[in-house]
């Protein structure tokens, strides 16, 4: 493992690819890898790309990365597609739209199956971001599954979240329901060559203006009430038009990305976001650990008989929890 980690830090593609597979397949390997790599992370600008299926996420990533590569930056891409809940298999097809990036040694593309996670990312995605960060990629772009619902996980994992819409893919109510305004740092109306793009831009701008945050996304996220940034500077969410298939609008998008980065640094939001992200990550690991401890401390027969009793309406779920916790605690003390 140590040799592999060293090679990853040197940016060797084969080592990166292998380590990602291990981390995807084994929580124990993930723990070992992240413990070793964490001190070398924190440099990459992590960019989430989300939006409805077919809105053009992969095509935008392809064109945007070509633009970013005109500067001397290396880019890692993680493209998540859904795992079939019926067979456990997955068809990972985002590379099809990213063929212009092949042959570029400064770009690494990795397809990932969601493996049952529901938030638009896979369970291991956060670890894979750190691997690419530690491997020296300046940007890590993450394309989410794109379920069309608020993919809050990506907003928590990324510094900048780009939400991609396309004309005629739904009305305002759907955008509001999907919660995209709450997670977007940059809104993109792709397929601007199609009729209705102007209307989509106008209605998005109007919603941003009318929304509770007044067209600015606060770092406080959805759970906490909006607060002004430390120096009072707010970020005005830009609404940009692109035609990704013709690589139109990419310079403006790259510029908005740079401006958002600068904003995060100047306003102090960078530190805030990192702290929030860290808390969510620790919280998730704690939950997993507590659950594992709990499961190990309660005999499966007891759990089984209690569940049967709940199903038969003989015991209510709250009482079942009390009994399970009591059992678990006495086991751990004894």
């Amino acid at each position: 493992m140590n040799d592999l980690l060293e090679q990853v830090r040197q940016g060797q593609i084969r080592a990166i690819a292998r380590l990602i597979t291990r981390v995807e397949n084994s929580p124990a390997a993930a723990e070992q890898a992240i413990q070793a790599l964490y001190p070398h992370t924190g440099k990459a600008h992590v960019v989430g790309v989300t939006g409805s299926p077919g809105a053009g996420k992969s095509t935008v990533v392809n064109a945007l990365v070509k633009t970013l590569r005109q500067q001397d930056v290396r880019v890692g891409i993680i493209a998540v597609d859904p795992t079939s809940p019926f067979t456990g298999g997955a068809l990972l097809g985002d590379r099809v739209r990213m063929r212009d990036l092949s042959g570029d040694p400064g770009v690494y593309i990795r397809s990932m199956a969601s493996r049952g996670s529901l938030g638009g990312l896979a369970r291991a995605t956060a670890s894979v971001i750190k691997i690419l960060d530690a491997a020296g990629f300046d940007y890590v772009l993450v394309e989410t599954v794109g379920a069309g619902q608020a993919e809050v996980d990506i907003a928590n994992a990324a510094h900048t979240t780009i939400v991609i819409e396309a004309p005629g893919m739904g009305d305002e109510i759907q955008s509001i329901k999907a919660g995209i305004l709450e997670i977007a740092d940059i809104l993109v109306v792709n397929k601007a060559d199609r009729p209705g793009a102007d209307r989509t831009v106008r209605s998005l701008k109007m919603m941003l203006h009318l929304g509770p945050v007044g067209g600015t996304r606060q770092s406080g996220r959805i759970s906490s009430p909006p607060t002004a940034s430390q120096n009072g500077a707010a970020w005005n969410i830009p609404v940009l038009e692109t035609v990704a298939t013709e690589e139109k609008g990419m310079a403006a998008l790259a510029e908005a990305l740079g401006q958002h980065m600068a904003h995060l640094r100047q306003s102090g939001d960078w530190v805030k976001r990192e702290k929030e992200r860290s808390w969510r990550e620790v919280e998730m690991l704690l939950q997993e650990r507590f659950m594992a401890q709990f499961q190990a401390s309660v005999p499966p027969e007891l759990r089984d008989s209690l569940l049967t009793a709940v199903a038969e309406r003989k015991v209510d779920p709250y009482t079942a929890v009390h009994q399970l916790l009591e059992k678990s605690e006495s086991k751990r003390k004894g």
């Binding site: 795992t83 298999g89 099809v96």
Partner: peptide, 29 residues
Amino acid sequence: ALRDAGMEVIYTGLRQTPEMVVEAALQED
């Protein structure tokens, strides 16, 4: 069919050069 058999299939599309195939296989492990 491979997806339905429970595998993770990376599909790369049409007109791949040999270089693209091997690069993708390397990156995707």
